[in-house]
Simulated scan of single mutants.
Amino acid sequence: MNVQVLDGQLPGKSIEIGEGFTLEPMTPTIGAVVRGVDMSKVPLGKTKDALRAALLDWKVLFFRDQDVSTEAHIEFARAFGELEVHPFAPHKEGYPEILAITHDKDRPGKENEWHSDVTWRECPSLGSILRAIEVPPVGGDTLFSDMYAAYEGLSDEVKEKIEGKVAIHDFAYFRGMMKKRGASDAEIEEMNKKYPMVEHPVVRTHPETKRKGLYVNVAFTQYIKGMERAESDALLQHLYAQAAIPEYQCRFRWEKNSVAFWDNRACQHYAASDYWPAVRRMERVTIIGDRPF
């Protein structure tokens, strides 16, 4: 298979931004480490603009040694948009905007599927900001995959087949978790009404960069509208597999107080669940996005 990466920046070479920080690209197409930003301070003016531009260029930004308060985590994220409250995932006590993601001996990791966050919403997230509170001694990395590159790497035949198609997204995973926890039929039906299945384009145009990227994922996409189910399933499996191509990926090794800020509109992620029975404790804030087109 001939895989081409088109962005073409050199990984590992620092890029001076000019607003007091630098970027160190991790790969030619996705992922950059940010140096010189203190997340305890709300980014304003040119600093915020430069960070947003870097996010658009690299799809995911990484920060080290950010020993910040929960309030600072929230306020940093809020600089980039309104924050969502996840209706299914556990929250940090007193902070509904903070997802508390803890895995240990009794709660093994389970985010080891390629996905973009909350695509079952009518307006899925713009981005997520995840901070490591406690990490395993080895393992527990998160991988990120560039969905622009995933789309651009498709054959012309497949691109033509998916042009203009829409797919159905659903919170089926969380519905299953509700049932396991003993939720009543009435409670589940209430959530079905609140979050009905939604249609999103198979190929999304990013609202800021205007670039095209794949926007289907194995966690929440159900089927492609207007296709026989067998054909839809086969095509989706082919599209899902694009995320797993190493040339489109970067991989981040977590340390305590490391932070990842990713653009859910342009990349997918996969949390490697290879650290059981060690503890991995994270906190996430999610920024509301707009309806895909």
Rank of each mutant, 00 (worst) to 15 (best):
M1T: 14
Q4K: 15
L6V: 14
G8N: 12
G8Y: 07
Q9V: 14
L10T: 14
P11D: 03
K13Y: 07
G18C: 05
G18T: 05
F21K: 06
T22H: 03
P25N: 04
P28H: 01
P28K: 08
V34C: 04
G36T: 11
V42H: 06
D49P: 12
A54W: 09
A54H: 03
L55D: 03
L56P: 04
V60R: 06
V60I: 10
L61I: 10
R64N: 10
A72C: 03
R78H: 10
A79I: 05
L83K: 01
E84G: 11
V85I: 14
H86Y: 09
K92P: 02
K92F: 06
E93H: 10
P96K: 06
E97H: 08
I98W: 03
L99V: 11
I101L: 11
D104L: 07
R107W: 07
K110T: 13
K110G: 13
K110M: 06
W114M: 13
W114H: 07
H115D: 12
H115F: 11
R121C: 10
C123K: 15
L126S: 12
G127P: 13
S128A: 11
R131L: 04
R131Q: 01
A132R: 05
I133Y: 08
V138M: 09
G140Y: 02
D141C: 04
D141K: 14
D146V: 12
D146A: 13
D146K: 05
M147Q: 15
A149Q: 14
A150C: 15
L154C: 09
D156Q: 11
E157D: 15
K159Y: 00
V166C: 06
A167H: 07
A167I: 07
I168S: 07
D170A: 08
A172D: 13
A172K: 14
F174S: 12
F174N: 09
S184H: 02
D185V: 15
A186T: 15
E190I: 03
E190L: 11
Y195F: 15
P196S: 13
M197V: 13
M197L: 11
M197F: 12
V198N: 06
V202Y: 02
V203H: 02
H206P: 01
E208V: 15
G213P: 13
V216N: 00
V218S: 15
T221C: 03
T221R: 00
E231S: 03
L236F: 10
Q237E: 15
Y240V: 05
A241M: 13
A244G: 14
Q249S: 04
C250S: 09
F252A: 07
R253Y: 00
W254Q: 02
S258T: 08
V259P: 03
F261N: 02
D263S: 09
A266E: 06
C267I: 04
Y270D: 01
A271C: 05
A272P: 01
A272W: 12
D274C: 10
W276C: 05
P277K: 06
P277H: 07
V279P: 00
M282A: 06
T286A: 11
I287H: 01
I288Y: 04
G289S: 12
P292W: 03
P292H: 06
